[in-house]
Design a binder for these strands. Structure first.
Lengths: 243, 243
DNA sequence: AAGTAAAATTTGTATGATGTCTTATAAATT
DNA sequence: AATTTATAAGACATCATACAAATTTTACTT
């Protein structure tokens, strides 16, 4: 009955949509430059303010990149770019179960990934994983930040082995945020526990790596399950200690 | 000798970070209003332009929503918002590998989800899934769009059963884009094939549903694998036909 | 006390000016 | 002839001001 009187979209939003549409149509391909602000003003018959706000939004979405003094270019769609918003969501999400759910999600998904990695691994992957393991062993016990990053890197390498960009993309927020989780939330164990936890981690990573070297998917999956079960348990323990 | 002096983040970027930081600190909670542009100008000692650009970026990221004449409010973080960039990524990179990788990713992850769903399902979930199945059966054979949406809805319900927000969030881009993939890329089979494919889909969904009703995780997982293997095969076939 | 109209506040758009960065071209030096 | 430096032009970044449009607050009337 009532047609939307709306048109509630702001000028800059409309311009933003038109530019997006042009990009989506292939009118401007990744790497190419879109018209200058001045030209866009003339094309759309609006002020530079409106154009600039539209451009700012598109840049924030990662659809274009603006180079000062040069112009705005359609960005090469990159996994990093695409997952930035997801990462932001994770960071801002105030859900207290977030960490627990993240760990549970990893428990569901990573065993499969380990299994796939065992099937598709090459010598190059093995070398990478072995180097990572050595680095972790050498890492200072008190440098928990580096250790967390190396730990994370191990899992990232695993996810990269099946050469499935989508899989990597979807899981990237988890791996990006994991070190932050550890730093901010996990309780600091006493020195003795620290050592024990690290040794345990190294053993688990070794088990996973060996299974992958042997191309034994089932064993890799099972080793990963064990590893993450420990992670889960450690988290529960640390939360209990806080009370 | 000289290190690059750059690292000059733009003014609006700096402001953006400060506001983000304040939100992250809990200084402004979801739903609350952040200071007006004028106030922000005074706080940061910059022009309104710079402040507005920062606000624009934050709004584009879905971190705040701006109401004309009222102010800017911290938004309730939603999955929809968070995955919007990802959706754009999927849309822009419409290369064929992407679809194949998406299908493969589903083949890796969804069997586990089906298995979990079998463990955690309630009567309410069963009812939902049964209704969805009935709707698909009733759906007009030629209305492929509705059919694709219903198909997708089935899988979405499954993902929601374990009540793991992270899992849902991570996979939402896949489910959001799946109908579009089908519409734009899959070859239209002949009428006979259409009927056959639909019957097959209904059989597979029934198998999955029955396994879930029986709380038989292994069977649910296996049924899902079969289902997605068919999806995979159909896609390969459709691509071959195009040549 | 409630409703309404006016005023104040706040965001949206427009315009002009100045600064800084990038790129291209010309001039000077080696 | 090749390299370096100087200059100019194009383009984005920031600032300031003004006005428009939407919302919220205030004041006034009933």
């Amino acid at each position: 009955m009532f047609s939307p009187v709306g048109n509630s979209k702001s000028l800059s939003q409309q311009i933003e949509e038109k530019i997006t549409e042009a990009i989506r149509n292939g009118q401007y391909l990744p790497g190419q430059k879109i018209p200058t602000e001045k030209e866009l003003c003339e094309i759309f018959k609006v002020s530079r303010t409106a154009v600039r706000e539209a451009i700012k939004t598109l840049a924030a979405r990662g659809i274009i990149v603006v180079k000062k003094g040069s112009g705005a270019y359609v960005s090469e769609v990159s996994i990093q770019n695409a997952s930035e918003s997801l990462n932001m969501f994770f960071e801002l999400s105030s859900n207290k179960d977030l960490i627990l759910q993240t760990i549970k999600t990893r428990q569901l998904i990573e065993p499969i990934i380990a299994s796939e990695a065992a099937k598709h691994r090459t010598k190059k992957h093995i070398t990478l994983l072995q180097k990572n393991l050595e680095d972790i062993k050498k890492c200072d016990l008190l440098d928990s930040k580096t250790e967390a990053e190396l730990d994370n890197a191990f899992h990232k390498i695993l996810v990269s082995i099946p050469q499935n960009n989508i899989l990597e993309l979807l899981l990237s927020p988890i791996f990006n945020l994991m070190p932050k989780f550890k730093e901010s939330v996990f309780a600091k164990p006493t020195d003795g526990d620290l050592l024990k936890e690290k040794e345990m981690m190294i053993i688990h990573h070794s088990n996973i790596l060996n299974a992958i070297i042997d191309q034994n998917g089932n064993l890799a999956s099972q080793s990963m399950k064990n590893h993450l079960a420990t992670t889960h348990a450690n988290y529960i323990k640390s939360q209990a200690l806080k009370k």
